[in-house]
Design a protein around this nucleic acid. Sequence first.
DNA 1: CTAACAATGTTAAATAAATAACAAAAAACT
DNA 2: AGTTTTTTGTTATTTATTTAACATTGTTAG
Lengths: 211, 211
Amino acid sequence: MKHLPHKTIERLSQYRRALLICLDKGQTHIYSHEIARIQHITAVQVRRDLMLIGYTGTLRKGYNVKELIDLIGEIIDSQEGINVAIIGMGNLGRALINYFSGKRSHLKIVASFDINPDKIGNSMSGVPCYSSEEMDKVIKEKDIRIGIMTVPAEFASQTTDALVKAGIKGILNYTPKPVTVPKEVYLEEYDMITSLEKVAFYVKLNEKEEA
Amino acid sequence: MKHLPHKTIERLSQYRRALLICLDKGQTHIYSHEIARIQHITAVQVRRDLMLIGYTGTLRKGYNVKELIDLIGEIIDSQEGINVAIIGMGNLGRALINYFSGKRSHLKIVASFDINPDKIGNSMSGVPCYSSEEMDKVIKEKDIRIGIMTVPAEFASQTTDALVKAGIKGILNYTPKPVTVPKEVYLEEYDMITSLEKVAFYVKLNEKEEA
DNA sequence: CTAACAATGTTAAATAAATAACAAAAAACT
DNA sequence: AGTTTTTTGTTATTTATTTAACATTGTTAG
């Protein structure tokens, strides 16, 4: 397998989550068009994605749910699991910890960081909160590879620099401030305001078209 | 102007935010490559986006910051402003309200909803929290056009149906559960787990390539 | 037993987006 | 004045992604 499109990677993650729900319900097989309907995409796209990862279903029976979940895991997960830290225990940081708690996953949130003394030393859903000053030490000690930045925008740059210096391999930046990393660090940025403005734009467009 | 690419819409929103910061600093003009550097894209892409919206800069002086901000506003904002509601006042809902408070914007968060009686009746950053049962009424009364869903996954579908029934025009779904809306409603879905798994995948890929 | 059907898997075409190439013109320098 | 530089604006090309077309093959129904 050579290069999976970025979009395919995202969809595989989503397929898996949908499949896990099917598995819990006791469903053993699923058709491409069933997966497609859940994700609001076409069955062709599903089949194409699965072709790219080399999975073969059964004609007229569809795909084996369990097998497919495992294969997707082989593709997108790392064998050993990856430790993750959340930097900034504001509302967003706490939201993320809640999202993840309970979900068995190869991604483990093993630490959080903040500068607020009231938060440092506490735990949330089993995730201890450390002082930001200890970031370098804790990241190295716990072999944390991914950092999720949920700090206020004004701390985005310095936090990024500290993470990079500590040897982080990937950053998910939820601050509205774009940051810069060396090319060996994978960076994903997401900005909620942009998403909302985009929705507003298309809402406006729809209204204009109706008129 | 015919069809602006989706990606251009997103970038325009981001350009504007960067430009607002420049304006605050008193900067009157900006070059395409300066905008590009902030957003980690190429200057060509910036110029192309601006070409698409029909904005013309000044040779060797760059773009007029104020003018460009205003033009982007004309393109992506609606004249009257749009009212927004947040459904689900958990950590994520509160994070969004904080994000937006203070930001003068044509998008106004005018209501939030929850089922927790302790939250109903309170206000946060000036945003009152109503009972989810009042959703239909409040959305109509306040002319709310966009709903941001930050409810637990298991409530995603029913919340969506309620929003659609109340006449919402756009939904930003932050639950990990994909939902379905009629085609006249614009839907944007974002899933934090997918983003994190994507980062993990590329981190793994980088590590393999190094080896 | 054969025809119709319903599903997968793959190649081909179309669309969307990013990048490259380059023309034009104001400013700066000699 | 002429040349170089810098920056914009536009067209052309390339790359990425989605969609369409269609071949294939178990399965079911007559």
